[in-house]
Amino acid sequence: MYAKSLESPLLSNEPVEPVYGPVEAVQVLREAAARVSVVEGESVTPIVNMGGTLTSMRVEASDHVEAGTVVAKIDGREVVAYTSDEPLYRDISRGLQGDDVVTAQEFLVALGYYAASPDGVFGASTAAAVSAFNREHGWGNNNDVLALGSLVWIGAEGLTVRETLGVVGTTVAPGSELFSSIAEPATVAVADVPELPPTGPAALTVNGVTVPYELGSRTVQDVESVSAVVSAMAGALESVGTVTLSEPAVQGSVPSSAVVNDPAGRTCVFTEQRGGVLIVSPTADTMGSVAVGEELVGRSVLINPREVRGDLDCE
């Protein structure tokens, strides 16, 4: 109690006594805002490998293209997308060996034409698979050559169409661009969060979507997490998210009446009725209490300094 009287403190003539209390330890799920931005990877602009009349476009803006997608027809024959680290540079035919044959075989495996393990050797089973592919896509009923003209390279992964560039009915030449693609997001960059510890497990929340985040890494790289954050950003390249510690942090808590701001702009608490100044840097002020550093937990501080101290200078 602030005065030994049953009367109102405003009417009592008895002096107000100092009230002391400990800095209590409280657990808080600490969080802070952080700017996030999408770091785009390289985009690919697929080109054709043959000349002729573009008789149809089979994709349009926003379509997702992957290995096996028919993207166009040239002279009535289908042009099919394939993925690999590097584009093919020659037609694939009987007797050939090499990494490009492996690429062709992996493509045929993905589409269900080739059942064996890719070995880089164009033999009878590869020839049969190529013939089946050509027959289905209009490249001849007895053709066992996988022609570059029947394929279009879309990079190592699938892509999304930004804009179609081919005009149906016009003549295309090798090297003509069919469509542009949207650069796939590679990572999500996260700005430093000085209010939180420099390292440790945390979570990043952007527009209601939460993914794991490691403090200090400044980036989210997991493919699923990147995809989730990018979707939450709905086409924006920059946004503001919230980084939250995975484990609650411990901090001190004192009644707001114990904290003083002096004319010089300093903030402190007092451990004694005279002297005993402790400079503090409050981190939050909620429900009548002020959050202070964990190092003050257990210290006894003056709860009513304004009523019992003549000097409220924090120096």
Score class of each variant (00 low, 15 high):
S5C: 04
L11D: 06
N13V: 13
N13R: 09
E14Q: 07
Y20C: 10
E24S: 14
L29Q: 02
R35K: 14
R35G: 14
E42V: 15
P46G: 04
N49S: 09
G51K: 03
L54Q: 04
E60D: 07
D63F: 15
V65A: 09
A67M: 13
A67V: 15
V71R: 12
K73D: 12
D75S: 03
G76A: 02
R77N: 00
T83V: 05
G98S: 01
D100N: 10
L108A: 07
G112M: 05
A115W: 01
D119H: 08
D119Y: 03
F122R: 15
G123D: 03
S125C: 01
A127P: 15
A129H: 02
F133D: 08
R135Y: 14
E136T: 12
E136W: 04
N142F: 01
N142M: 02
N143T: 00
D144L: 03
L146W: 07
G149A: 11
G149C: 11
G149L: 01
S150M: 05
V152Y: 15
W153M: 05
W153T: 07
R162F: 03
R162T: 02
A173Q: 14
A173F: 15
F179Y: 14
P185Y: 06
A186Q: 10
A186W: 01
V188C: 11
A189S: 13
A189C: 06
D192M: 09
E195C: 00
G200Q: 03
P201R: 06
A202N: 12
A203L: 11
A203I: 10
L204Y: 06
T205S: 14
Y213N: 08
L215K: 03
R218W: 08
T219P: 00
D222W: 04
V223S: 10
E224Q: 10
E224N: 07
S225L: 00
A228N: 06
A234M: 09
L237V: 13
G241R: 14
V243P: 13
V260A: 12
P263N: 01
C268T: 12
G276L: 00
I279D: 09
P282T: 03
T283E: 06
G288P: 14
V290T: 12
E295W: 00
V297Y: 11
R299K: 15
I303H: 00
P305W: 10
C314D: 03
E315Q: 11
